[in-house]
């Protein structure tokens, strides 16, 4: 009964040092030495100060910017210190109200655009921090952004294309547009 206590205690201690201290330190050391930008959050730096991460979404509600995925984090959307999805079930009336409100907000920002709204633009992401929208969602907003910025749609189209990633290795995942990077590029183009 008690014969196994010494091996339990000693192996627990030694293996904790190995897997709980040495292993994460080794991975940190190698990562920081060889891939520090990625290991530190893929930050976007402007004028020496971080303005976001290329992997973390930010909120945009000004119609002259491209809008990203709705976010269910609290107390503000895209709170990168407390990630969360909405967890609303498919038949929850609150979900339908939320989607209805988002469709309306998009329509109000761009009167006259009667195309169906791409689904990712009106549904909350899983993390609340999704940095991407689908190319369809960017296309939907393109004319609005061009008009409000007084730019030719072709110019915006070119910027969108530059910030669109295809499937990884041509096969994995989904094509997507990085919203923060695109909006920063829009501001820089002005």
């Amino acid at each position: 009964m008690l014969k196994e206590i010494r091996p339990a205690v000693v192996s627990f201690l030694l293996l904790t040092l190995l897997t709980g201290i040495a292993y994460p330190l080794l991975v940190t050391g190698i990562s920081q030495a060889t891939m520090s930008a990625k290991a530190n959050g893929s930050l976007i730096v402007k004028d020496g100060k971080p303005v976001g991460s290329s992997l973390i979404g930010q909120s945009f509600s000004d119609p002259k910017y491209f809008w990203g995925r709705p976010s269910a984090t609290g107390p503000v959307a895209n709170n990168a210190a407390a990630s969360s999805g909405s967890n609303l079930g498919p038949t929850n009336p609150a979900l339908l109200d939320a989607v209805k409100g988002r469709v309306q907000a998009l329509r109000d920002a761009d009167p006259g655009n009667t195309q169906p709204v791409p689904v990712d633009l009106v549904t909350a992401s899983a993390s609340g921090l999704d940095p991407h929208i689908s190319p369809a969602a960017a296309e939907y907003q393109l004319a609005r952004v061009a008009r409000l910025r007084g730019l030719m749609p072709e110019a915006i189209h070119k910027l969108v294309a530059e910030h669109t990633e295809g499937r990884q290795f041509g096969i994995l995942g989904e094509p997507r547009v990085n919203v923060l990077e695109l909006n920063l590029a829009l501001d820089a183009a002005r």
Binding site: P118, T123, S127, H132
Partner: peptide, 22 residues
């Protein structure tokens, strides 16, 4: 509600609530 959930070359469509674009 006027939402497009069809799969196409430019979007995955479907039930995207609680899912990530990538």
């Amino acid at each position: 509600l006027g939402v497009d959930q069809n799969v196409s070359a430019t979007q995955s469509g479907g039930n995207m609530e609680g899912k990530e674009t990538r």
